[in-house]
Design a protein around this nucleic acid. Structure first.
Ligand SMILES: Nc1ccn([C@H]2C[C@H](O)[C@@H](COP(=O)(O)OP(=O)(O)OP(=O)(O)O)O2)c(=O)n1
Ligand SMILES: [Mg+2]
Ligand SMILES: [Mg+2]
Length: 1182
DNA sequence: ATCCTCCCCTAC
DNA sequence: TAAGGTAGGGGAGGAT
């Protein structure tokens, strides 16, 4: 199978962290490694093991006293055997070398890669063959190493790398299979690849003192000018906006969120989307990676730095625990690595130049590099901000292509990139290692197998510290060892997948193909630095921030989620002082997951569930060192409500035009403001459809059902899927949103934004608002300016807030791509992160390909094939890949947009009662500020609860004693619902607010047996809501599943649906019409009793239900709603009866009976409220 | 067998 | 002083 990297999961290793217990203050600082730099721990741990082993074995001599060997690569005798021999004879065996912990390197055969590796070591040690050990033992004394030195290194170190023709080993046809003979030596074409004098054996040359002083001064200036950490409070204790300020300065946050940003940029057209992979067969793969990316950016902007040891880091404190983010290759000669503490780095190189981060620039460079890569090949798989796979099969000579690519990247960005070339992803990736820095390397298929033998196990992608250790414990030290094991044995030891992946990887086998970024499966936010809580309320508050963050990101991504995970780091017993300043130190990691049976629908919902989980984990607040929230079981937001158009952006049809404004006015006490309606630009609107925004379908004949466009001419009878549900359901398991489609027809239909013909006003780049929708009082109660904006504020860039405000309420797709591209980086980022991709309300004008673009595949696939562009600038190349595309914008110019009042003007109570999709819309438009406002509403109303209702904890949604972890938790939430129904007759506030729309359960979650038990007309209604294929499947499953005859005959086969339903007329189409009606009920709040909805929500959230029962719970809810649709909404007893009958259907299968009973009671109790609720709502709305 | 939860591991 | 995030793969073990 695909051997995408080897991973070992589940293995409970003794982490380096765990053992520090030697040191009461956890890891000891003088080791100089970061928490992530396990090397030291690894080494001491193994040293201990060794000592124990030696003791066991009994030391038989002291021949190797004072000798510490590190065995490199495959040897004979084996790694393990040498280890034993050393142990027996008084030597030390070092698994993980540092410049100082060993005296000799033992090695059987030298490869280029190894030489390179040795060269990089600060003080290289003699490299000796294993015979030295064997012979010494034989002689019973330590023999001189001279005769055993490996010949290649016996001469002047580094000398053998000076190859003829003055070119680097990695760009030349080389003995080691590195490089492909090519007439155009890279050195000619690209000076960057020309040989650079390396300092021999990595011993750093002396630097010019004057230059060095100048460089240090420049670095100091940069650090002083960097306001990233200036004067900011530093922990959760003292910074109320800690989450924001932390993220804005976190490098790991930056690289972690990068993919999300790229995806959005692709969607928005700023960066073109990728195209399908060519079919099966031999492929040529590039792995492109910028050299020491962050450091390189600094070097390129300050040439003074080049050639001097440089690192990117927040702090220059030579005793500190700030982490190195990236070190240039000069610094690496000293052993400096990413992740290292500054203290350790300065120890290795006191003259290290330290520069601060420049995230804006990294983003720019990354984008430029991606544009160039996509111009090279349209088939690009992004891996990270500085790294991607390219499929360049059939695009010409790989070596030349790579040279060109690297040259272009360097020309455009000032940063060098290296390219690994191989016949599969694994080989390409390994080749990059050899190529670096600033080189390229082609490992030919024929030499791949032998190339593998020169690798360390940890060179295999996916083999990290724990896996190496595990393998070592199995006696596997080298790739050759690995190859000697059978796949079955590896699988038995390491698990099925891991074993197979290792087996493949050790042979250079990798069946993956360059692929589009997969649909995201989870989304989370966590903070494990600076987290210190003084009270449980602190923790709860913090969780609130995280909940908002997660909720906001979900909105930006257009997803909902059903599974929430809380992650906690709990200070380990006995560890009080993390070595790292404000770090988490040694912790136990805990997590708890909560599954909603329907997607969480507000920040408050998320917060509440999170608080419950926090409580249930029983971690004292003072012990919490890290905390995070993650959402999984994601679904694209395809709710029917979203296809109805947005109240806030759509030109309201006559008659209904004032509906929402009125609602909003009621909510905000603002006078109507239609007069100030904004006319935003008729820009290219790429994102029409909701989830598929990125896929700009040029095929004019393609039905736009998915985008809801078809609904403008509703003709239920004519359409088998009038409700559009089919489209929705398909989207749920839809491909991706980037326009990669695995069916190759994407060729020639690949659509990108054409550069706008409208000239962008120069001011745009300088932050002048493109629209007049500036919020009044954009001062402190202005638009939601979140997370990264905190930095801007501190920077005094208030202007940015205005720019952002001007985009408020717009969808990404509505913003002209050039406009977006011209904006400053962080504004772009903010927009891309915070705005919804699409305006659900966008007028449904067509997107037409101006030119059909019957591009020949090769041209479309890039490689600068486009005539006239062969020498073009990268930008030109990029444009060449674009397919001209224009969006006709009918009536857009005149579309009035309802202006949004400032958040603080919104009445939380009204917010709380809005149908969730409306609230969601507002939240997406406003950003997290609105979520906060909603939260206020929820809390406010909660405090107003009637006496007798069990109050929650003082300051937050934490509830009392929580459910036991495993079983019988089923009744906890239902009990809650029941109690609420009983006691909360009057003003009992809804914790979850009313929603009027519901997902139809996916057909796979509708149990046919349940359907079969239902009254025929209900079952029929439900069936009819599914698209034909699923309907057929369900109904046949239903017929088979139904044992008793009653329902059997009443459901016709798909073809003659309704024919036998016995119900006089064309039942389905009537029902469909009803369904349409339902969907068109834009303000169901007016029609459905709020209390009833609330009761549904009680059931709807299904807190804590075992996953297997969620589908059933959904069914119950769906049924309830169908009954409401049938006009039974006022007949509460009837609804309750329906529910009871559904309950009967479920009972005996051991689920939900209690739930249903509880909800029924709840509904009955709620009935009393209905009248009052209607009056209340009515008063609000009029 | 398959799913679910709670981890662990890896990569950037 | 200093910003140790994010997402996916995968295993163990229990529930169904
Ligand atoms: N532990 C890490 C690893 C990476 N990065 C950031 C800084 C890097 O510059 C960037 C890219 O990661 P790479 O692994 O590609 O490392 P470099 O590009 O710095 O070096 P190389 O030349 O080895 O690719 O990600 C980081 O901050 N911390
Ligand atoms: Mg890199
Ligand atoms: Mg990289």
């Amino acid at each position: 199978m695909a051997s995408s990297g080897v991973r070992s999961g589940g293995a409970v290793q003794a982490r380096p962290d765990d053992k520090l217990l030697l040191d009461p203050d956890e890891e000891s600082l003088h080791h100089g490694g970061s928490f992530r730099t396990y090397m030291h721990h690894k080494m001491s741990k193994l040293g201990e093991q060794f000592e124990a082993q030696a003791a066991d074995l009994g030391v038989s001599s002291r021949i190797f006293q004072g000798v510490a060997v590190h065995v490199n690569g495959y040897t004979s005798p084996s790694h393990q055997e040498l280890k034993v021999l050393m142990a027996k004879h008084g030597g030390v065996f070092i698994n993980y070398p540092t410049p100082t912990n060993h005296t000799h390197i033992i090695c059987s055969n030298l490869t280029d890669a190894k030489i390179k590796q040795f060269e990089k070591a600060r003080n290289h040690k003699p490299v000796v063959s294993p015979e030295w050990i064997l012979e010494s033992i034989k002689a019973q004394s330590l023999l001189p190493i001279a005769p055993f030195l490996l010949s290649t290194l016996r001469d002047i170190p580094g000398q053998q790398r000076l190859l003829p023709f003055g070119t680097r080993a990695d760009v030349l046809p080389a003995k080691d299979g590195c490089g492909t003979a090519h007439p155009m030596a890279a050195s000619e074409e690209n000076p960057a690849t020309a040989y650079n004098q390396p300092s021999p054996m990595g011993a750093p040359v002396a630097y010019d003192p004057a230059e060095m002083r100048a460089a240090q001064a420049e670095a100091a200036r940069l650090r002083a000018a960097c306001d990233m950490l200036k004067g900011a409070p530093k922990s959760s204790r003292d910074d109320p906006n800690f989450v924001e300020s932390f993220f804005s300065a976190s490098r790991l946050h930056f690289i972690g969120m990068w993919k999300t940003r790229l995806e959005s940029l692709m969607l928005s057209g700023v960066i073109g989307g990728p195209t399908p992979n060519p079919g099966p067969g031999a492929q040529v793969i590039f792995h492109v990676d910028l050299d020491c990316f962050f450091a390189s950016v600094a070097e390129s902007e300050h040439p003074l730095f080049s050639g001097k040891p440089l690192a990117v880091c927040h702090s220059n404190n030579a005793k500190g625990t700030a982490e190195i983010s990236s070190a240039n290759y000069e610094a690496r000669k000293y052993g400096i690595r990413a992740g290292m503490f500054m203290a350790g780095a300065k120890q290795l190189c006191p003259d290290l130049i330290v520069v601060p981060y420049n995230f804006e620039r990294y983003q720019e460079v990354s984008e430029q590099a991606y544009k160039i890569m996509m111009a090279c090949s349209a088939c690009v798989q992004p891996l990270s901000c500085d790294e991607a796979f390219l499929d360049v099969t059939g695009l010409g000579d790989p070596f030349q292509l790579a040279s060109r690519l690297r040259a272009d990247i360097q020309a455009a960005t000032g940063c060098t990139a290296s390219v690994g070339i191989g016949h599969n992803l694994l080989i390409a990736r390994l080749a990059t290692k050899r190529a670096k820095p600033d080189g390229q390397c082609h490992i030919q298929e024929a030499e791949a197998a032998s190339a593998m033998l020169s690798l360390e196990l940890s060179d295999l992608p996916g083999v990290g510290w724990a896996t190496s250790k595990k393998l070592a414990s199995l006696g596997l030290q080298s790739v050759a060892d690995l190859q000697a094991w059978s796949k079955a044995r590896l699988q038995a030891e390491l698990g099925d997948k891991t074993g197979a992946a290792l087996w493949d990887a050790s042979r250079g086998i990798d069946t993956r193909r360059v692929a589009p970024p997969a649909v995201r499966k989870s989304l989370g936010a966590e903070v494990n630095w600076g987290v210190r809580f003084d009270s449980p309320q602190d923790a709860t508050r913090f969780l609130g921030k995280l909940a908002e963050e997660v909720w906001t990101r979900m909105g930006a991504a257009g997803v909902q989620g059903r599974s929430l995970t809380l992650k906690l780091k709990k200070r380990k017993e006995g560890v009080y002082n993390p070595v790292k300043f404000m770090g988490h130190g040694i912790c136990d990691n805990l997590s708890r997951t909560h599954t909603f049976h329907r997607p969480a629908h507000s920040a408050a919902t998320i917060h509440r569930a999170a608080c419950d989980m926090l409580t249930s984990l029983h971690v004292p607040h003072a012990d919490i060192r890290g905390i995070g929230l993650g959402m999984s079981k994601l679904e694209k937001v395809t709710d029917a409500s979203h296809r109805k158009g947005s109240f806030f952006k759509v030109p309201a049809p006559a008659g209904s035009a004032d509906r929402l404004p009125r609602l909003l006015r009621a909510a905000s006490d603002l006078p109507g403001r239609q007069g100030e309606a904004v006319h935003h630009k008729p820009a290219e609107d790429l994102g029409r459809g909701m989830p598929d925004a990125g896929r700009v379908d040029c095929d004019a004949s393609a039905p736009s059902a998915a985008t809801g466009a078809g609904r403008s001419s509703p003709d239920p009878a004519a359409d088998d899927d009038p409700s559009g549900k089919a489209a929705d359901l398909q989207q749920l398991d839809g491909e991706d949103s980037l326009g990669w489609s695995s069916n190759g027809e994407g060729e020639g239909r690949e659509a990108r934004l054409s550069p706008s013909h409208q000239e962008l006003p120069a001011d745009h780049a300088h932050g002048v608002a493109p629209s007049s929708l500036a919020s009044e009082g954009s001062g402190h109660e202005g638009p939601a300016v979140t997370t990264d904006m905190a930095r801007d504020r501190r920077s005094g860039l208030a202007q940015r807030a205005q720019v952002l405000a001007s985009f408020q309420g717009m969808a990404l797709s509505q913003i002209d791509a050039e406009t977006l591209a011209a904006l400053p980086w962080d504004i772009q980022r903010e927009l891309v992160t915070r705005l919804p991709r699409n305006s659900e309300a966008a007028p449904r004008e067509g997107v037409e390909a101006v030119t059909p673009q019957p591009d020949p595949p090769a041209a479309n696939r890039g490689a600068w094939r486009t005539p006239g562009l062969a020498q073009g600038s990268p930008v030109a190349s990029h444009e060449a890949v674009n397919v001209s595309l224009r969006t006709s914008s009918i009536e857009r110019v005149d579309s009035p947009v309802v202006p949004l009042p400032s958040v603080s003007k919104l009445d939380p109570a009204v917010l709380a009662e809005l149908p969730w999709h409306l609230r969601r819309e507002l939240e997406v438009a406003y950003g997290p500020e609105l979520a906060r406002q909603s939260l206020r509403g929820a809390n406010m109303r909660r405090t107003g609860r009637p006496a007798g209702f069990k109050p929650g904890p003082a300051s937050g949604p934490i509830r009392g004693p929580t459910r036991p972890p495993s079983r019988t938790e089923v009744d906890a939430p239902h009990t809650r619902g029941f109690k609420r129904g009983q006691g909360g007759s009057g003003a009992e506030p809804p914790l979850q607010r009313a929603r009027h729309m519901h997902h139809l359960p996916s057909s796979t979650t509708v149990d046919p047996r349940v359907l079969a038990e239902l009254p025929p007309e209900i079952a029929e209604e439900i069936l009819s809501a599914f698209p034909r294929g699923q309907r057929a499947r369900l109904s046949s499953a239903m017929r088979e599943g139904a044992r008793s005859g009653g329902v059997q005959g009443s459901h016709a086969a798909p073809g003659c649906r309704g024919g036998e339903s016995g119900k006089t007329r064309d039942a389905p189409s009537v029902m469909n019409a009803r369904f349409e009606e339902y969907l068109d009920t834009t303000t169901p709040l007016l029609h459905l009793p709020a209390a009833l909805l609330r009761a549904c929500v009680e059931l709807g959230d299904g807190d804590g239900l075992p996953g297997s029962q969620h589908g059933v719970a959904r069914d119950v809810e769906t049924i309830l709603h169908w009954r409401l649709l049938q006009g039974l909404g006022d007949d509460l007893e009837g609804v309750a009866a329906t529910l009871r009958s559904a309950t009967r259907a479920f009972s005996g299968r051991g689920c939900l009976e209690e739930t249903a009973i509880a909800v029924t009671a709840s509904i009955q109790a709620a009935a009393k409220e209905v009248h009052g609720a209607q009056l209340w709502l009515g008063s609000i709305l009029n």
